[in-house]
Design a protein around this nucleic acid. Structure first.
Length: 406
RNA sequence: GGGGGAAUUCCCGAGCGGUCAAAGGGGCCAGACUGUAAAUCUGGUGGCUCAGCCUUCGCAGGUUCGAAUCCUGCUUCCCCCA
């Protein structure tokens, strides 16, 4: 196997990367790998704490894929032990701890999703429980003896918490140490992750040097912002686009992105050459956004599905045509009085509103419509003649067709 | 072991005996505007048989004509000193 020229590799690796530290060392490692014809070992660790892999996760994963394409060895670490601690990164509070069983179930699910980005057939997958489970308490003490508290406290999340008098638990302090130790165990040359991982990545270098291993290089991706355009994409913030979501759902979320985010999304989530991206962004923002959505959705669902989701979005949202499959709401004939129902009640029975109060509000604010021609309702108490096939709407998103039951 | 503080509606957070369904912000919902958005503006955001009524302020009691506000006990959490 032969590796591409170092400069070419560096160019590819450098795209959409916030920082490579130390950059010269990466070049040197690539040089060395070419000379000895041996691949670099590229580490990426994930804690199986949740289930939905979203686009934010794919940023380093895609980077890993690129390394694979260049001929390097991907090493994925399933943090089944670190997951028991919970990553304190960017959190101002302690994470809920997971049980062993939850972690196992999540791990399996995770790999399935990760496989959509990384070529698992060519990757090494290891669990850090393999080595942590076997450590004795004295081994742990040895490991702890390599890191000082002052060092730990330089870590941003810890010092923030410390200053604001939030609790920091002892086991949380071990998290970065464990993560760093993983690098030693798998002899990582390169570690991938977000910029918030800098601390652990640097700690890994220290530990590697301590056992006479060449220290790893950190390749850190910027943090992808979520659909709100400001905060990092994350499950708990509800601003994520999951890679397992149906194409149309993904498309709707893409189109809701603030325009400013497009550059970042293009850089980090697509292979499109930079000059083409500039051209797209210079054009109509709507087209640019549709193209972005199609490109990314295509990576997970195929080009055709992506194309269809875009067409559907144009039809339904942009031109306001009716959804092809409007959900049917059954209403029991017994609930009707003379085939009629007060407007507010009707919306609740159809499941479009949570409570009559909710429905009244919607109607009073002019957000409730009825019929094919979108007639606006204005009186919550008005008696509506209910017929099967009748179209009901609340706002832009809630819609259903009535079916009288019984 | 000792001392101090806190628990409020989806979240943060004001309220400290009546004028409290409870300020303000965030989020969310609806309307206007638009290229979908974002931004902006407007309104809304416990429930109901809705100009009225009912249930909410950690839990359980108590004081009072009247309590989110005072007292007692409990639970949970935080901080500080040892």
């Amino acid at each position: 196997m032969s590796f591409p020229a170092v400069a070419d590799q560096m160019a590819l690796i450098g795209r959409g990367v916030e920082k490579i530290v130390p950059e010269e060392e990466l070049a040197a490692k690539l040089e060395q790998s070419r000379k000895t014809n041996s691949p670099l070992r590229v580490k990426y660790g994930i804690d199986p704490t949740g289930i939905d892999v979203h686009l934010g996760h794919t940023v380093p994963l895609r980077k890993m894929r690129q390394f694979q394409e260049l001929g390097h060895q991907a090493v994925i670490i399933i943090g089944n032990y670190t997951a028991l601690v919970g990553d304190p990164s960017g959190r101002d509070e302690t994470r809920a701890r997971l049980t062993q069983e939850q972690v196992e179930a999540n791990a399996k699910d995770y790999l399935e999703q990760v496989g959509k980005v990384v070529d698992l057939s060519r990757a090494e997958v290891v669990r850090n429980g393999d080595w942590f489970a076997e450590m004795s308490f004295s081994d742990v003490l040895d490991l702890c003896g390599k890191v000082t508290v002052a060092q730990l406290l330089t870590r941003d999340d810890f010092s923030k918490r410390y200053k604001s008098e939030q609790p920091i638990f002892l086991h949380e302090c071990l998290y970065p140490v464990m993560q760093a130790w993983d690098s030693v165990k798998i002899r990582a040359d390169v570690e991938l992750g977000g910029t918030e991982q800098l601390y652990s990545f640097m700690l890994a270098r220290d530990l590697q040097k301590d056992v006479n291993l060449p220290p790893q290089v950190s390749v850190m991706s910027p943090i992808l912002v979520g659909t709100d355009g400001t905060r990092r994409m994350g499950k708990s913030l509800g601003n994520y686009i999951g890679i397992s979501e149906p194409p149309y759902e993904m498309m709707k979320k893409f189109m809701q992105l603030p325009d400013d985010c497009m550059q970042m999304y293009y850089d980090l989530l697509t292979e499109i050459p930079l000059d083409e991206i500039s051209a797209l962004l210079a054009g109509h923002p709507k087209t640019a956004k549709l193209t972005l959505g199609k490109t990314v959705i295509g990576q997970y669902h195929g080009a055709q599905a992506a194309e269809e989701s875009a067409a559907r979005w144009e039809r339904e949202i942009s031109q306001g045509e009716l959804n092809a499959d409007i959900p049917v709401a059954k209403i029991a004939a017994a609930d009707l009085q003379d085939g009629k129902l007060p407007a507010a009640r009707l919306m609740v029975c159809a499941g479009l509103c949570n409570s009559t109060s909710d429905a009244r509000r919607a109607i009073n604010q002019g957000g409730a419509y009825i019929g094919e021609d979108k007639q606006r309702l204005d009186d919550p108490n008005a008696l509506i003649e209910v017929t099967s096939g009748m179209l009901l709407r609340v706002g832009k998103k809630r819609i259903c067709r009535v079916q009288i039951d019984g």
